[in-house]
Simulated assay, not measured.
Amino acid sequence: MLRTQFEEDLQNLHTQFSTMAQEVSDAVYKSVKAFIKHDKEIAYNVIENDVKINELEVQLEKKSLEMIALQQPVTTDLRIIITVMKASSDLERMGDHAVSIAKSTIRVKGNERILEVEEKISDMADAVKIMVDSVKDAYINGDLEQAKAIAQSDTKVNDYFNEIYDMCIKEMKENPETVVGGTDYLQVAGFLERIGDYVTNICEWIVYLKTGKILELNSNRDDLIS
């Protein structure tokens, strides 16, 4: 009977994590859409909804600690709970970066636009959103190989950042009126790159879940910062 309750609690953790991952994916998509379209209403919506993402993380952490204290799980069961706690913390930080992108939208006031850069940022955001959605599936299915493949795809996100950086620097040198807007573009691209890094982090927790080993899956990335 106790085991059945424990398994039910684990399933609830998985469901909550999946819900949180979907909320974060939506936040990333909407924040970039708001930035590209200069839509402050969508931006405010992303900021307001971050409360829900934070609450989901608190609930997951609280339930995880409760299960560890009361059930005293070992081996695989303990790894599952640790993975949920660590991965949900990464999701919460991803949500924070989506909020930062939304705040960039609200700050922007008629700056000189660089349409080619905006298009590239949109493509970068699409690549990041695919990573976020895929890592949710990899987690739910406990798919080790998919997790490794997602981590490798972060290289593409880093390449987008480098392209955007080069484009912005070139434009800012040639047209000083684009300096303020170009700086915003670089910030947003930086936030997206960080989100990709946190997805890679979750991939590493999936590997830990399945193998008990903590591996660095993408050695090219920078050290993570909150």
Rank of each mutant, 00 (worst) to 15 (best):
M94F: 07
T105N: 04
T83G: 02
T105S: 03
V99N: 09
M67C: 05
S122Q: 10
A102T: 07
D126T: 15
T105H: 08
G95Q: 01
M67R: 01
I114G: 14
L115C: 11
S122F: 09
T76G: 14
K103V: 08
I106Y: 03
A125M: 12
A127W: 11
G95N: 04
L91P: 14
K103L: 10
I82T: 00
E116Y: 10
Q72M: 00
D123S: 15
A127I: 10
D96Q: 11
A87W: 07
S104T: 13
T83K: 09
D123H: 15
T75Y: 03
I114H: 02
M124E: 13
M67G: 04
V84A: 00
E112K: 11
V99Y: 06
H97A: 00
I114N: 12
V74C: 07
E116H: 15
G95M: 02
D77F: 07
S104W: 13
R113S: 15
Q72Y: 06
Q72N: 05
M67L: 04
Q71M: 08
L70T: 00
S88M: 07
N111Y: 05
I101A: 00
M85R: 00
G110T: 11
S89H: 09
R93C: 08
K103G: 13
Q72I: 09
A125D: 00
R107G: 02
D123Y: 13
N111C: 03
I82F: 02
L115D: 15
I81Y: 04
I121D: 07
